[in-house]
Design a protein around this nucleic acid. Structure first.
Lengths: 232, 232
DNA sequence: ACAAAAGTGTTCTGTCTACACCCATGC
DNA sequence: GCATGGGTGTAGACAGAACACTTTTGT
């Protein structure tokens, strides 16, 4: 049978993916925005994204766009929500499958935002009004991150391979917008048995340097297959 | 400026919505399936769904399809996930924005599944192999329901307006696939203050009849705006 | 020696868990 | 009066919250 005989004749919306890229740096949660060089919304900031090709699924599209626009690769990425309001794009009917990504800003700070780039990191408290319905998308992305960080070990995706306990706590405090008790936090995190202690401390500070840890991904994978649930 | 000048020239996938409709009845979680009358997958069971029109967003599309195919209206519905694999539909490139709905089966049992209808309720333990990638979609929908019922009061959407405590507990036990202690369950639910006691019991049984309750939606809305979080 | 941040244990409190007996109803 | 399922309270275990002093390091 011919594929053709099955073809749909309905009018079709355009389909894009957009990616909300979170980073964490200097005690702030940040998001990467691109300044639009074309209409509509020329000069406004928006999330990186682009059109779905016919030979890729939306995950691949989001990863591809992420790489093309920011040089970022091999990062945590997850589908967020699909936006489909009729008038969300003045050019016509566009459906956007949104994703959010978590990146280790320490690794990528240099690439995006350098020299003449039109990409820039904004602390989420200082994000300007965005193009399209991207303000709404950002709110939803932040809510997802906040909800998920408590019961999935995704916070580590925002920190360098090696991080200290105060850094990890600061990340949680920032994302959850609440203060946490130092002793209780450390106890709870270490109890999971998922941190590798490097027996190595931060040097060159005018005070005691914190110990370096890293997250044991392999162990987490094993444990979660046995029904273990991360929770903080 | 003309809208036309903005028009995208990329090839476009077709876009549909599908709806996983859950019901609860006779102590079983059930899902509504439609027997396909056309190729591809003719004769196989699949979720109700259809093409997105150019004048509706995906929420509206899902509600419309739900109503057209099952006569169901005014029910809980929520976007689940968007599926976009290149070969998921033999007819060509089709992207599906999936939704799940929770319905009070007691109200709708008669409509779907009557006489010569091609719709039927299946206990989730007895769902046959489905068309397209609908098996995968169902697994994801069940996982979402299971995850969400604990911290959002969505279980009530599956029960009649008035329900008894044993019915509610049976629903939770079924969805969560675990036994719950009767006294502790009742205590925890009543502690929320969100159940209205009708001071009325089930009659005509060969034993003590259970009391009727209903869920106080209005109070829940007020409380949740003040930061209250439902949890069971 | 002092300033600055990291590291560490214990008590208290409230929540979750486990559990057994009486009650109402229809036959 | 008996079989069936509904309703109720309490004691022990456990986890979460609160909290203060000592250690290290650079200047």
């Amino acid at each position: 049978m011919e594929t053709k005989t099955y073809c749909y004749e309905y009018p079709r919306p355009a389909v894009t993916t957009d990616c909300i890229i979170f980073g964490f740096d200097e005690g702030e949660l940040k998001v990467l925005l691109i300044k639009r060089g074309i209409e509509p919304f020329i000069g406004k900031w928006a999330f990186p994204g682009g059109f779905l090709q016919m030979d890729e699924n939306s995950d691949q599209c989001a990863l591809r766009e992420l790489y093309e626009e920011t040089g970022v690769k091999n990062v945590f990425i997850e589908q967020l929500y699909t936006f489909s309001d009729v008038d969300r794009d003045p050019r016509g009917r566009v459906i956007t499958i949104s994703y959010y990504a978590l990146i280790k800003l320490s690794d990528y700070r240099l690439k995006a935002g350098d020299d003449a780039s039109n990409a820039e990191w904004f602390p989420i408290s200082k994000v300007p009004p965005l193009a399209f319905d991207h303000d709404r998308i950002l709110r939803i992305a932040i809510a997802r991150l906040r909800g998920k960080i408590r019961y999935q070990p995704i916070g580590f995706e925002l920190l360098p391979e090696k991080f200290t306990m105060p850094e990890l706590q600061s990340l949680y405090e920032t994302v959850l917008e609440m203060q946490l008790d130092r002793r209780n936090f450390r106890k709870k995190i270490l109890e999971t048995g998922l941190l590798i202690d490097h027996n190595e401390t931060v040097k060159g500070l005018p005070h005691k340097g914190a110990k370096y840890f890293s997250f044991d991904k392999k162990k987490y994978k094993e444990l979660s297959e046995k029904g273990f649930n991360f929770e903080i």
